[in-house]
Design a protein around this nucleic acid. Sequence first.
DNA 1: TTAATTTGCATAAGCACTTATATAATTATA
DNA 2: TATAATTATATAAGTGCTTATGCAAATTAA
Lengths: 323, 323
Amino acid sequence: MNTIKQLGYIAIGTRLRMLTDKFVSDADRIYKSIGVDFEPRWFTVFYLINLKKSITVTELADQLGYTQPAVTQIANSLVKKKLISAVKEKRDSRKKILTITAKGEELLLELIPIWQDIENSVKELFNDTGNDVLFVISKLESELEKNDIFSRVMEKTKNRQLDEIKILEFDNSKKDVHKKLFKELNYEWLNKFFKVEKEDAKQLDNPEREIIKKGGFIFFAEYNNEIAGTAALLKREDNNFELAKMAVKEEFQGRQIGKKLGMAVVEKAKQLDCENLFLETSSLLTPAINLYKSLGFEEVEIKEPSKYERATFRMKYNFKNYN
Amino acid sequence: MNTIKQLGYIAIGTRLRMLTDKFVSDADRIYKSIGVDFEPRWFTVFYLINLKKSITVTELADQLGYTQPAVTQIANSLVKKKLISAVKEKRDSRKKILTITAKGEELLLELIPIWQDIENSVKELFNDTGNDVLFVISKLESELEKNDIFSRVMEKTKNRQLDEIKILEFDNSKKDVHKKLFKELNYEWLNKFFKVEKEDAKQLDNPEREIIKKGGFIFFAEYNNEIAGTAALLKREDNNFELAKMAVKEEFQGRQIGKKLGMAVVEKAKQLDCENLFLETSSLLTPAINLYKSLGFEEVEIKEPSKYERATFRMKYNFKNYN
DNA sequence: TTAATTTGCATAAGCACTTATATAATTATA
DNA sequence: TATAATTATATAAGTGCTTATGCAAATTAA
């Protein structure tokens, strides 16, 4: 029974569940020992109907943070026990108006002092811990609302994945392998979504002459000792550069490979004192566009026709915001 | 959704349940988004089997604070997924020994970094609240173990009930009514459990002469404007007194009537500088004996035969402990 | 050394929610 | 002014525990 506590932060869900169960089962024992025919789960609904005097199912669900079926089920139990009555609203017959019955009012007279005792007991318990438990719970709720465990973990997982990716530059000593990889990776995805255009084929068939000799760079992402993706930084007129030819093997998608490649390209552009880094893509590729946005690119108007048919979306890196 | 928070201490069970659900459903989303076939509820069991390498169902249940069926169910799911194996122990074939399979070990390699991320995220979340949440939870658990909500509420309810009971002394101006009540209340319970003995009849038929004139006292408990019970303090030789003739109407039992009557009798004895207050009852009447114990009576040996046949248990008030 | 008790696990059913989906009434849109 | 979309509730099934109970193996007592 102690092991669960030794697990600390990681088993907090289980501990909270156990605490919850204890509170609920104690409430149940209290009602039973006093001989009141009332169940803990009815409490919030019954209490709120009494407070509002008259309320619909959906309103209750909204105010309590329950789902609608939960409220429907509880309300049905209460109706069965004749503690509340349910009537259709005249103006809108979909709505069900819940009110306390005479029998319910009678039960309330018994329940209210018990609820008072429970409230005081919880207050006392919290006091005994020497901490403002209610405040801590509220804080926990509000911090979770701002940034929940899921998004915190996703953030961490992303960073962990990024660390597992190694970026390599085009290596002349492995020329043949790298040329082949660069071509294959790009052909794979181009053929899947679009087609290999003339301009593509020129660069992919002879990357050395068309990219590197012209002052551009080619990068590869290595993951688990396997090349998982590629991207290029193309040199254009003046000090303009283009991020292009980014391709990630399908089996490695969703593992931040594109992100890491993009970061490498941007980094290189910065080293080269580039002042205009742009890219062209298709407006259909929303995941890619989101990736580029996360890297620091922003949408710009297309002024002159692109070299590629598929290019319907142009983005420019904002060096001001990301330096 | 805010109403639940406005309820404060009284709806704490619901809020804890919501917090718990959030933690568990986030864990579920994490496993799903990473593409790992693992369920949050398996965690503690799977984690502990790995930690201990080999463990039985009951041992797991004990260490985790789960019920045995819960562990059995989780273990069955894990066996079905081939993540653990279950084999009977040779020496004791009732026992089922659980160990991680090769497939389980493989999954662990994926899970461990995720668990690390979850642990760090929870730690971070707790930090963000600016409170030592883990400590508060531990405190809450330990205070609940010392004194849970049920016993706290019972205590309060008892006191509330005690306050609702009014104690009256035998009133000469209502002589006839009081004599009748005293007799009826005692006859009712005596006839139910034992029989009215000669000594009983003497006192009950003429309480004035047999009790009050001899220096004794008769009390009544009034609850909801109704006489619900009675008890007497009988004067014996020297300054010895006896608590006797306590009777509570059946419909009022369990409402602290006996307790309040007993307290009144003891109080009177103390006012009279009594040094020896005793009572006789039947060892069969365990609820009564418990009541007397709670008042401060302790069991003593029966030295001389009692005036009553039913008396098989003698108790004496301990004035030292309760002054 | 048989009989009674205890122990370890399995199974069934229940509880208090959830998600998913259906259905009917109402409102918005073309 | 039909038709589509939205809203309010109901129903079914699932989840992750619980309690209750059964059964067989092991241990203890007579």
